[in-house]
């Protein structure tokens, strides 16, 4: 039972109270770059969730069975970024061969994910927080879901921003950042959410 509670609190934390975008500032570049339309935002969110889940699992195994066993802890950053880059490349080739429909839907976003700091961030945080294998995978997937939630909400607001009347100098990134700031304020409300 205790384990289930731990997993539930990781889930709630990753999606709401400790959202990767709004409270940890990880993955801001794709969050601002790929959020002009809801459709593309959904595609990006799903791709990120997928890669974050897989990357958490593989980097955990790499760390536990290769880096720690050989005493190469200081190579963590280099090893992880290489794992993530090759993982993304691999997923791309695999999807192209076996699931062409999903590949065309995600196609453009997959290469971008290599430099998404949320992916490397979740891999490093798993190790820093001493998570077990299951906890790491759950943290990766739910962190991705938190990103999906944030980017879809944000894209919906940005679509409406076209009709808003704001000073010309705020065009583009500034108004998007202010919107994101107000959303972060709303997400702060979740910080009191400590059920367990």
């Amino acid at each position: 039972m205790q384990e289930i509670y731990t997993l539930l609190s990781i889930t709630l934390g990753a999606i709401l109270s400790n959202n990767f975008i709004f409270s940890q500032f990880l993955g801001i570049c794709p969050f601002l770059g790929v959020s002009k339309k809801v459709d593309t935002a959904v595609g990006m969110g799903i791709a990120v969730t997928f890669v974050m889940g897989l990357a958490s699992a593989i980097t955990w195994l790499v760390n536990e069975y290769i880096l720690v066993t050989l005493g190469l802890g200081y190579m963590q950053t280099v090893a992880f970024i290489l794992v993530i880059a090759s993982l993304v490349q691999f997923i791309e080739m695999f999807l192209q061969k076996s699931m062409p429909s999903l590949y065309t839907a995600l196609g453009v976003y997959l290469p971008l994910i290599t430099t998404n700091c949320a992916v490397l961030g979740v891999a490093l945080l798993n190790i820093q927080n001493n998570y077990s294998f299951i906890e790491s995978v759950v943290y990766g997937i739910t962190g991705g879901l938190g990103f999906l939630l944030a980017i879809v909400l944000f894209a919906s607001i940005r679509e409406r921003l076209v009709f808003a009347d704001y000073p010309k100098n705020w065009d583009g990134f500034p108004i998007a950042l202010v919107t994101a700031g107000l959303m972060a304020l709303a997400f702060m409300g979740f910080s009191g959410l400590k059920v367990w």
Binding site: N169, G172, I175, L177, V178
Partner: peptide, 25 residues
């Protein structure tokens, strides 16, 4: 106090970029 929290990061950076766009234009 809000400005030292994540909210402040978004708001201050947004304002700075807006000021930069104003100055450049």
């Amino acid at each position: 106090g809000m400005l030292t929290l994540p909210v402040g990061g978004f708001l201050v950076l947004g304002t700075l970029i807006a000021a930069m766009q104003w100055a450049l234009s």
